[in-house]
């Protein structure tokens, strides 16, 4: 549980949106590396030890995707080797492949942290004002899925108790058993849905002027953090739009001459991806400090 989690959903959502979008926009290897490291750090912080599995898988994906690019893209001057009927495998294409693979891995890792921190509850809350009906539908689906899953389990148990378990037997009979389960679940679901609809209307659903319960409060510290996030994102975006971070890959790699804006953007990006870590460390120090005073 990181203390970053305790911020208003808007703040955390903006953070993830920002780092994911910037992560796929920067083509500069330096920025890619920063994004990748930031995402991996956050992923490990939120997922702990079990996060290592995904990280391992992503390492393999990184290698495969990097090697794949030169096979489809023979551009670039530095030929490492040729294969097949005289097809080149170039260094430039390999580096470009590594950058795009890093991009993919970065996005996946950010999403992993996103899923840990942005629960369905927070997402439906965020969109509750913008899209109340859709948000309510999603809320209901999130409520029904575990209910149905449990019902399905109990149906399966009930059928196992009379020797109609679908675990064994030929494929066709297993498929047929699945169909029967689905059909029973549907009957049951529709019957209870009518009760749900009654319960909603009985409690005034459909009256004009529906409001939303504010489960989260937007406080000063949320405002401050959101402002910082926006500032850092804006700096990166300006650098991106003006081409300060642009890189040439083909025919030869040229990083161009780093300008002030480039360094500023890099600093901003580093700060941005490390925000959750900063916050955790800050709270940690604060906690130590206040403890020592007690």
């Amino acid at each position: 549980m990181s203390s970053f989690e305790s911020f208003h959903p808007l703040v955390t959502f903006f953070f993830f949106a920002s780092v994911i979008v910037l992560g796929v926009c920067f083509l500069n290897p330096l920025f890619s590396a920063v994004g990748l490291l930031g995402a991996a750090l956050m992923h490990l912080r939120t997922r702990g030890k079990e996060g290592l599995r995904l990280l391992g898988g992503m390492a393999i994906a990184f290698v495969v995707l990097s090697l794949l690019n030169p096979l489809f893209n023979p551009a670039g001057d530095t030929v490492l080797f040729t294969y097949g009927p005289n097809r080149p495998f170039t260094l430039q294409s390999l580096v470009f492949g590594m950058v795009t693979a890093a991009m993919f891995v970065t996005v996946i890792l950010w999403f992993s942290s996103f899923n840990a921190i942005m629960t369905g509850e927070k997402i439906t809350y965020l969109f509750g004002r913008m899209a109340p009906s859709l948000s309510l539908t999603l809320t209901m689906v999130l409520r029904l899925v575990p209910t149905y899953r449990r019902k399905l389990r109990s149906i399966m148990d009930a059928r196992a108790g009379i020797g109609k378990s679908g675990a064994t037997g030929p494929l066709t009979s297993r498929v047929r058993n699945g169909g029967a389960l689905l059909s029973l679940l549907a009957t049951w679901a529709f019957e209870s849905a009518l009760v749900t609809a009654d319960s909603m209307r009985s409690r005034g659903f459909g009256l004009a002027g529906r409001t939303c319960f504010a489960a989260y409060r937007f406080t000063l510290r949320d405002g401050v953090l959101l402002a910082i996030e926006m500032l850092l994102t804006a700096l990166c975006a300006v650098a991106l739009m003006t081409g300060a971070t642009a890189v040439e890959y083909f025919p030869v790699i040229s990083l161009g001459c780093p300008t002030v804006l480039f360094w500023l953007a890099l600093l901003s990006y580093v700060s941005l991806v490390l925000i959750p870590t900063f916050i955790d460390c800050w709270e940690h120090i604060l906690w130590r400090f206040s403890l020592s005073r007690i």
């Binding site: 689906v141 399905l152 689905l182 679940l185 909603m200 459909g206």
Partner: peptide, 25 residues
């Protein structure tokens, strides 16, 4: 209206859960 939202939610939840019915395949 309430019933429209409910029917939509039920169909979506059924679609998401349906995989469990075929867990053995």
């Amino acid at each position: 209206q309430a019933r429209e939202v409910v029917v939509l939610a039920v169909m979506c939840a059924l679609a998401v859960v349906s995989r469990v019915a075929f867990i053995w395949i």
